[in-house]
């Protein structure tokens, strides 16, 4: 049951007009491995447009990479047999960024949970299904009577995002692919959400790929971190090491971009990404290319 999720030389290009090459490369030769055992949190940090959400779509099988492959249990996810595919779907589940768009406005929110029950054959009896749903809602600290039977627009963003977590809780996947799950939540709800993720890791042994642009949440979650820019992973390692001794100039830039909570210390000497180009070339010459360790 417990297996590995591996990206091997994944490259994703998109056709684009008005670009010299005729395409843009969103993800460029990305390799990493997520192990289900021991459960861990791996963060993927980068600015908007760095390709991190595309990686999430690749891993979830929503987008077939142009080159390279995504392997689940050693097999390409686009070439799985029927039963392997079922297992992969159950075992790799997402939490998406936008808690508003994730629900079809036409239906009540219960439907998302019932779909999970039925599609993954959790149970065939209605009362057992309801019991599972209520149990999972309580696990993410929602009162079933407050959310069941409601339409998406009647719930807050935090409630909706937690319903997605309840869905994950029901399915008990080995891997959660969380694509900027807290970027649209306010600070208090955000902490709540992260705590639930950590609970899942501890209690149910779920490994999370946590995609974000926000270093403070990465710091809070701990574990491993990978820094991505322009489709390439430029730095990886334990959070404490990367945060305190960043080796790549882009990581330094990210760290410098966190505003200091000090009114006397104005946020002035930032470097911009464009300036980074030259430094990056220098860094490449100086430091050897990062290996692809198994995290």
């Amino acid at each position: 049951m417990k297996s590995e999720l591996e990206l091997r030389g994944v490259e994703q290009r998109f056709h684009a007009r008005g670009v010299a090459a005729g395409h843009i490369t969103a993800v460029d030769d990305v390799s990493f491995t997520l192990a289900a055992e021991p459960p861990q949190v791996v963060s993927l940090v980068g600015q908007s447009g760095s390709g991190k959400s595309t990686i999430a779509r690749n891993v979830l099988g929503l987008q077939k990479p142009t080159a390279g492959s995504v392997l689940y249990g050693g097999k390409d996810i686009f070439k799985l047999s029927r039963s392997e595919y079922d297992e992969y779907r159950r075992d790799v589940q997402p939490v998406f960024q936008d808690p508003y768009a994730i629900f079809n406005p036409f239906y009540r929110v219960d439907r998302v949970l019932w779909k999970a029950v039925k599609k993954f054959g959790l149970t065939t009896s209605r009362s057992k299904g309801l019991q599972l749903i209520e149990e999972s809602l309580r696990a993410v600290r929602l009162e079933p009577e407050n959310v069941l039977g409601r339409y998406p627009h009647q719930l807050s963003g935090g409630q909706r995002q937690r319903i997605m977590l309840a869905r994950v809780h029901m399915l008990r996947p080995s891997f959660i692919i969380a694509d900027e799950p807290v970027s649209m939540l306010d600070a208090q709800v955000r902490k709540h959400f992260l705590d639930i993720l950590l609970d899942f890791q501890r209690e149910h042994g779920m490994t999370t790929l946590f995609i974000t642009h926000d270093l403070s949440t990465v710091y809070y979650l701990g574990g491993e971190v990978m820094v991505i820019t322009k489709g390439k992973i430029v730095e990886r390692g334990p959070v404490s090491t990367v945060m305190h001794e960043p080796s790549h100039p882009y990581t330094k830039l990210l760290l410098d971009s966190i505003p200091q909570p000090d009114p006397d210390n104005r946020w002035t000497n930032r470097i911009t990404v464009d300036e980074l180009e030259d430094q990056e070339a220098d860094a490449k010459a100086a430091a050897p290319a990062p290996e692809t360790p198994i995290i």
Binding site: G61, R89, F96, A101, Y107, F120
Partner: peptide, 23 residues
């Protein structure tokens, strides 16, 4: 995103069209 969610919930194309898009 709800179409993506349906896809990771093993919904087929026809099912997505009929139940997610059509209404």
């Amino acid at each position: 995103p709800y179409v993506d969610l349906a896809r990771v919930s093993k919904a087929r194309d026809l099912e997505i069209i009929a139940t997610e898009l059509l209404p």
